[in-house]
């Protein structure tokens, strides 16, 4: 499958519907979708950086004064907490993107 047949295949399939939607309306809808997507990515990556680079490296000497369960918090974040957070972030992204897809997909 080369790029030409791939592109034209999808154009043929939806060309009749494409014509119904105003070009400008479509561009606006896609821009809004992309903006919502990048905002979501930015927010999730802020959490990602704060938990892994922040709580698990930069603030560890500070956080180690607090205890979580029976281990120092900074140490626990670095060896357990950050990994749990990563898993949750990826699933949040997948679920939120389903919602965005539903909202911005052409009805």
């Amino acid at each position: 499958m080369n790029s030409v047949s791939f592109m034209s295949g999808s154009v043929e399939r939806y060309s009749s519907r494409e014509q119904e939607e105003d070009k400008e309306v479509k561009a606006q809808r896609l821009r809004a979708y992309w903006r919502a997507n990048t905002t979501l990515i930015r927010n999730l990556l802020i959490v990602w950086g704060f938990v892994s680079l922040g709580c698990s490296i930069l603030f560890v000497p500070l956080l180690n004064n607090i205890r979580f369960g029976s281990v120092p918090l900074g140490f626990w974040m670095a060896q357990q907490g950050s990994i749990f957070t990563f898993v949750i972030l990826v699933f949040i992204y997948a679920i939120k993107m389903d919602k965005l897809d539903r909202r911005y997909r052409r009805k």
Partner: peptide, 11 residues
């Protein structure tokens, strides 16, 4: 690449 997948088709 940036547009919603299968624009138009319901899930």
């Amino acid at each position: 690449l940036r547009s919603p997948e299968l624009d138009g088709a319901p899930l």
